[in-house]
Structures are given as structure tokens and as C-alpha cells.
């Protein structure tokens, strides 16, 4: 009789443990969602704070925010993130490139193609899907892999700019050594090689000017 009872007890404990484990998983997911949420609300609070803030910085902040807002879905934000990513690779900074890969993933996903013609939309969507995948990989890889993905990403971004245009002056640069020849875009005329970084910083040449 006592054996039966202890067995029952053990079964009960196991059941509780299992339930607890599975609940834990749920909770973890919820926490994760909460984390994202709170991050978002921090931004929200920030803008509210600016709003209430009546000192001299107020207008400046508001203007900066307004520019950000109006450009959010545009190609310029993608370009900005791309150039930041490129600079991180130039500086051999794996961790920073990961963060910027994440940022680029976000700006690519929020890209709004609706202002373009149908054929352009199809092409742009295709480019965005491809670029997003490379940006995602960059956000989770070592630097050698990041550079591999950066190569195709650069082609995608070049093709995107050919459709969307940009108000920036861009330089298409070329490294003959990396992977049978690889292109990247830059805002500066000077060569700073993102495929080799400090190892061969000035290797490459200017191939084309855009705008």
C-alpha cells in the first residue's frame, strides 16, 4: 500500500515538474516578447519626454526625429545602415557588424515599395528578400562569413539604388582580389576595403560614380 502511495507521489511530482518546465518555456517566450515591447516603449517614452521638455534642445530633437520618421520607409535609411555596416567591416569589428546587420534587417523589412511601378515593385521586393537574408546572416556570423554575405548584399543594394535613386553621391569601388573580384558602395572617394579591413585597407579602385 505504501509502495503504491510513494509511486503515486513520484508520478505526481514528475507531472508537476513537467508542467513547470513547459510553463517555464512559455514564460520565457513571454519575457522575450515583453523585452521587445519594453524596448519599443522606451522609444515611445523618449519621444514623449522630448515633447514635454521645453528647453532649447526641444526643437532640435524634434526636427531630428521628424527627419527619421519621414525617411523610415525609404531607401536612404537602408543606405545609411549599409554604410555603417561597411564601415564596421572596414574596421574589422565583428560585434558591431552583427548589430548593424540586425539594424539593416529591420530597415529592409520596413522598406515601402508602394510608390514604384508594378515591375519595379516586383524587382525591389526580390532584392529586399535577398538582401534581408544576407543581413540576417551578417547579424549572426563570424567576420569571414559576414564579408561573404556582404558581397552579395552589395550587389543587391547597388541594384536597389539603380531603381530607387538616392540624393547622395555614391562611389562604386572594386576589390580585384576578394573572391574573384568584389564590388562595394561607399560615400567617400577614398578606398577603404571592407573585404580585408586592416589587412589590406587601401586595396581596390574606384569603378564608377553614382550621381
Amino acid at each position: 500500500m505504501s509502495k503504491l502511495r510513494s509511486t503515486l507521489g513520484v508520478v505526481a511530482i514528475a507531472f508537476i515538474t513537467l508542467t513547470a518546465v513547459s510553463c517555464n518555456d512559455n514564460k520565457k517566450e513571454q519575457n522575450k516578447a515583453d523585452g521587445d515591447h519594453s524596448e519599443m516603449s522606451v522609444d515611445g517614452d523618449h519621444s514623449e519626454m522630448n515633447h514635454d521638455n521645453s528647453d532649447g534642445h526641444h526643437d532640435v530633437d524634434k526636427n531630428a526625429m521628424a527627419i527619421n520618421d519621414s525617411q523610415d520607409s525609404k531607401a536612404e535609411v537602408i543606405l545609411k545602415d549599409y554604410f555603417n555596416l561597411k564601415n564596421a567591416l572596414v574596421g574589422d569589428d565583428n560585434a558591431k557588424a552583427k548589430d548593424l546587420g540586425m539594424a539593416l534587417t529591420k530597415s529592409l523589412k520596413s522598406f515601402d515599395v508602394s510608390s514604384h511601378s508594378n515591375t519595379e515593385q516586383t524587382e525591389l521586393k526580390d532584392i529586399i528578400v535577398d538582401a534581408t537574408e544576407h543581413a540576417e546572416h551578417i547579424s549572426e556570423s563570424d567576420i569571414a562569413h559576414q564579408r561573404e554575405h556582404f558581397k552579395i548584399l552589395s550587389k543587391d543594394i547597388t541594384d536597389m539604388v539603380a531603381i530607387t535613386g538616392t540624393n547622395k553621391k555614391l562611389y562604386e569601388q572594386f576589390c580585384p582580389m576578394y573572391d574573384g573580384g568584389s564590388v562595394w558602395l561607399s560615400m567617400e572617394k577614398d578606398i577603404k576595403n571592407p573585404y580585408y579591413g586592416s589587412q589590406m585597407l587601401n586595396c581596390g579602385k574606384l569603378q564608377r560614380e553614382i550621381n
Partner: peptide, 15 residues
Amino acid sequence: KVIAWIALIAFVGIQ
């Protein structure tokens, strides 16, 4: 003994 039982039952449970 108890731990062994729990492990066994958890193992069966997850099946």
C-alpha cells in the same frame, strides 16, 4: 531513488 524515478517518468512522459 526518488530522483531516478522522476527522471524515468519524465523520460517516459516526454515520449
